[in-house]
Each structure stands twice: as structure tokens, then as C-alpha cells.
Amino acid sequence: MLSLQILANGLVLGGLYACIAAGFSLVWGVLNVINILHGSFIVLGGYLAYYAYAQFGIHPFVSILIAAPLFFALGYILQRSLINRMIAAPVLLTLSLTFGLDLMLSNGMLVAFTADFKKLTLDPPLGVLNLGGIALPVDRLFAMVLALALTGLLYLLLSRSRIGRAIVAVRMDREAAALMGVNVKRIYAVTFGLGALMAGASGPLLAMIFPISPLSGPVYLGKAFVICVLGGLGSVPGAMIGGLALGVVESFGALWFGPEHAITLSFTLLILMLLFRPTGLLGRTGYA
């Protein structure tokens, strides 16, 4: 029974992880840009939800709808105005650029919100669902369902829509996509916007579960890295599998080795994957 409970906890956490990683993986896969900003976008989305709830009583689930277009616009403009200028540069240079932008954003958040942890606590709480002895906090359950739904929507967008096909085409062969009439720079901006949207929208979900602090950005970023390596880069199903796997591993790891070793465990996993299966659990599929 205990292991079922741990498994359930892990899957709930993993659903959120999938959502964190999907946008990061998309940007990395399509643009070959390692977006260090991703973690801070998540935190910023969390603050948005926190203040929307504290000031205006807007439920975090509703905040997602506010965060999504805002973060898409932020990502789109950032890519169009700055990152597109050096998109052809080696990956370490774009990494430096997003690293610098992240320093500005995370320090800006430190100034604006202080380093104190803030906790979004729903009042009244949603309670706990008891499924045959397995206790599932309803807020976490909803957050996971929404996270998986968002990730699923991203997958549908990439595999079924015209713009999604263009994103996938650019990922596979930028020049051939240009010959099809795809405006590659615009697709880059849309892709970065989608990555930011996924980060900003997962912020409110995480804010319901974890305390919010500007210092959490790197933690989320680290998770996104591990999940990309676990699931395989640039694929939504990969992020889904990698996220769920990491959630379950961390849950059981916390049980067996203590929660203080969760990060050690996940990076050990990362190194093992890089050594033995660098293409990820799903291999390099490339599609969506």
C-alpha cells in the first residue's frame, strides 16, 4: 500500500515535471537554444498566480489563462528582438545570452518580491481524495491533470496544426522548411513563445504545491535538463515519459534515501543516462 501511495505521489509530481520540461525541450530541440530563462519563467508564473490570488482572489487555475497569453507574448518578443539576432551562433553563445537575461530576471524578482518564500494557500482547501487507501490531495491532482492536459495540447498543436507542422519542419530541416515558404524567424519566435507559455502556465500549478521563491528557478531548470535527457530531446512524448519517470524516481528515492537526496538522485540518473542511453528513453524520434 505504501508503495502504491508513493507511486501515486510520484505520478502526480511527474505530471507537473512533464509540463515544466515540454517547453524547455521544444525550444532546445527546434532552436538549438538552451533557455536558461525557463526556470525563472516558471517562478514568475508562480508569482503571477500568488498575487492574483492574494490581491484579487483569482483562482490559480484561472491564472493559467492569464499567464498563457502574457508569457507567449513575452517569449515571442524576446526571440524576435534579441535571441534571433544570434540564433546562428554556437550554442554556448545563445546559452550565455539566456543566462544573462536570466540573471536580470531572477535578480529583478529578488528585488521585487524579496527572497522570502511565499506560499499560495487555497482557502478553503480543496481537501483530500481517498482512493482505496491512497490519499491524493485534490489540488495536486487537479494540478497534475491540468499539467498533462497542457502538455497534451502542445503535442496536438505540433502534430496536427499547420503552424505545428511548420515548427516540426524547421526542427528537421530549416532550409527545406524555408523552401516550403515557412518564415523561419517567425517560427523561431512562435516556438520560443510556446516554450515561455508552457513555463509561465506551469508556474501557477507549481505555486499551489511548492513555496515560491526567485531561488527556485535553477531548481526547475535542473529538473527540465534531467527530464530532457531522460525522455529524449525535443519531443513532447519524451518530456511526458521523462517527467513521469523523474517524478516516480524522486518519490521512491525520497522514501529510500531521504528527501534531502532527491536532487543528487536525479542528477545521478542524468549522468547514468548520458553514459548508457544518451538518446533518451524514447530514442531520437524527432517528431513533435
Binding site: 507542422r165 511548420a166 519542419a169 528537421m172 530541416d173 523552401l179 516550403m180 515557412v182 524527432g286
Partner: peptide, 17 residues
């Protein structure tokens, strides 16, 4: 320069982008 991991139908649809 086909989009090799895309279906043939999707490749053709890319032509009509």
C-alpha cells in the same frame, strides 16, 4: 531534403504551407 520523420502526407501538406 524531405522531412524524414514526418509522414508522406504531412510532407506534401508542408508543400502547400
Amino acid at each position: 531534403r524531405l522531412f524524414s520523420a514526418m509522414s508522406i502526407r504531412d510532407n506534401l501538406l508542408m508543400g502547400a504551407y
